[in-house]
Structure formats: structure tokens, C-alpha cells
């Protein structure tokens, strides 16, 4: 079973064209089919004006909710919020859980501009995610708000929450490896410009159960990321199964045998 841990869809793409189309749920399903992806964790892209202004992700989250209702066996909806909005961010998380049936949260420390190790700001959000049993996927890799080391204090403070470091932390892969070695609840996700060499390096040093396939579609072609994993020389079948979907299924409580279409 293949689960993509990182994908985007939303009205923001009407004006800001990514690599592949991603405004309508049908377009997402088409991409999933073309890459043999069974299910995908789907969330809003960063909003960028001025054509589409949605500073609190209210419109974008609703679009994700609609998509996951349309394709419940393919699309796993994630919420997106700006933690700086404090109570309103918590309200939107609650709406995502109670009304939209979301199952995870995406945060972008650069775009929403906060430090992930600001436990005062992150505390209430992490506590709610713990209650909902939601994983939190963080954009990672840019100085000065998204370095992988900044996730360590959060992961240690909230051991029951699973934190996903997207893009293997880009240029900071070596730091990501240390974070994942220190914290069993930190997972490294392969999307973006990760090279096959970086993925190989991570597999050498990090437990395969902490590595997740993600594509960042429609900014990238998911086939491209998948082949970097499947073509790794000497990769074990069990490792490939875990990375491509087994780990994400475990995190989300999805029964692989039942879910396979």
C-alpha cells in the first residue's frame, strides 16, 4: 500500500501554477492514479496573494474537507493553521476535527513565521493534536525558523505526538538524522528536492520505521520521488514497504489489509 505523506491542493493554485494541476480533487486523483498511490495526506498550499487571500486557511481547509468527503478512500484531509492566530488557530483545528474529519496538521514555520521550539506558542496546538491523535508535519530545512534541531524540544516535550520533518530538512539532512535518532516520535519525509543520495544516507542512519514517503505533489512528480526510493541499490523489500506506506498507515491507524482497494 502506498501512502503519500505530503500533498497539496487548493484554490490558491488557480493563480499560482504548480508543476502539476491541483485545484480540483479530480486532478489530485489523476496524479495519484498515475503514480499508483493508494492514499494521500492532503493539505492546503501556502496562500500567496494578491489573487487569493486566505490568511487563516479558512477557505483552503474547507476545500480539503470537500475533497476528502468526495474521495474518502483516497484522500486523508489535514488541517492547516497559523499558530500566531492563537485561539482562532485552535478553533480552526477543532472545526477540522469535529466537522471536517481531518486526521493531521501541516505547519510551515517560515510561512507562518514562528519558531517550532517556542513551546508557549506550540503547546496548546500540540496538546490538541495529542488529544486528536494527529501527526504534525512541519515544513523543514530553512534557516532561521525551520532547522531540524528546532523540532527536538517539541518532540521531547510531547512524546505522544508524532512529528514529521518534511523534505528530509533539505540542506540540513545531517541534522534531521540526529533529530530522528534522538526522538522516536520524529519522522523524516522524502519530498521536495531530496536526492537519492540523501535518502540512502537517512536509511543508513535512521530506523526505517521513521522514514516516510512523501512527494509534495503537485509541486513535484510523485513518480520521481518514488523511484528514488525503489531504485536504491540493495533496499530491502520490508524497508520499501514501510517507507512507501506501512509507516504512515501505522501513524494514522489505517489497517493496510482492509484499506487496499
Amino acid at each position: 500500500m502506498i501512502i503519500d505523506a505530503h500533498s497539496h491542493m487548493g484554490p490558491a493554485f488557480e493563480s499560482r501554477k504548480p508543476y502539476l494541476p491541483g485545484v480540483h480533487p479530480d486532478e489530485i486523483i489523476e496524479i495519484l492514479d498515475a503514480a499508483d498511490i493508494d492514499m494521500t495526506c492532503l493539505f492546503a498550499p501556502a496562500w500567496e496573494g494578491p489573487e487569493f487571500i486566505d490568511t487563516e486557511y479558512l477557505v483552503a481547509n474547507r476545500a480539503i474537507a470537500d475533497a476528502s468527503k468526495m474521495y474518502p478512500d483516497r484522500i486523508i484531509g489535514y488541517s492547516r493553521v497559523d499558530p500566531n492566530r492563537r485561539q482562532r488557530a485552535l478553533d480552526e483545528l477543532r472545526r477540522g476535527h469535529d466537522e471536517y474529519g481531518f486526521r493531521g496538521l501541516k505547519l510551515h514555520p517560515l510561512w507562518e513565521h514562528f519558531l517550532p521550539n517556542n513551546l508557549k506558542l506550540m503547546g496548546p496546538i500540540a496538546e490538541l493534536c495529542e488529544e486528536y491523535r494527529w501527526p504534525i508535519i512541519f515544513h523543514a530545512g530553512y534557516y532561521p525558523t525551520c532547522e531540524p534541531a528546532l523540532f527536538i524540544p517539541l518532540a521531547e516535550r510531547y512524546p505522544e505526538v508524532n512529528f514529521i520533518v518534511a523534505h528530509l530538512g533539505y540542506a540540513h539532512v545531517a541534522d534531521s538524522i540526529i533529530a530522528a535518532q534522538l526522538c522516536r516520535n520524529i519522522y523524516l519525509e522524502t519530498s521536495g528536492n531530496s536526492t537519492a543520495g540523501a535518502i540512502n544516507e537517512v536509511l543508513k542512519h535512521v530506523d526505517a520505521r521513521q522514514i516516510l514517503y512523501g512527494s509534495d505533489l503537485p509541486f513535484t512528480d510523485p513518480n520521481d520521488v518514488q523511484s528514488k526510493i525503489t531504485l536504491l541499490p540493495g533496499i530491502r523489500e520490508e524497508t520499501r514497504r514501510l517507507v512507501l506506506g506501512g509507516n504512515m498507515a501505522r501513524l494514522l491507524g489505517i489497517d493496510e489489509k482492509v484499506a487496499v482497494p
Binding site: 496562500w47 500567496e48 496573494g49 494578491p50 489573487e51 487571500i53
Partner: peptide
């Protein structure tokens, strides 16, 4: 200003 806000900015 925030340039992303377009006309408001």
C-alpha cells in the same frame, strides 16, 4: 505592508 495582501497594501 504585506505585499501578498494586494489592494490593501
Amino acid at each position: 505592508v504585506n505585499p501578498n495582501l494586494g489592494q490593501q497594501a
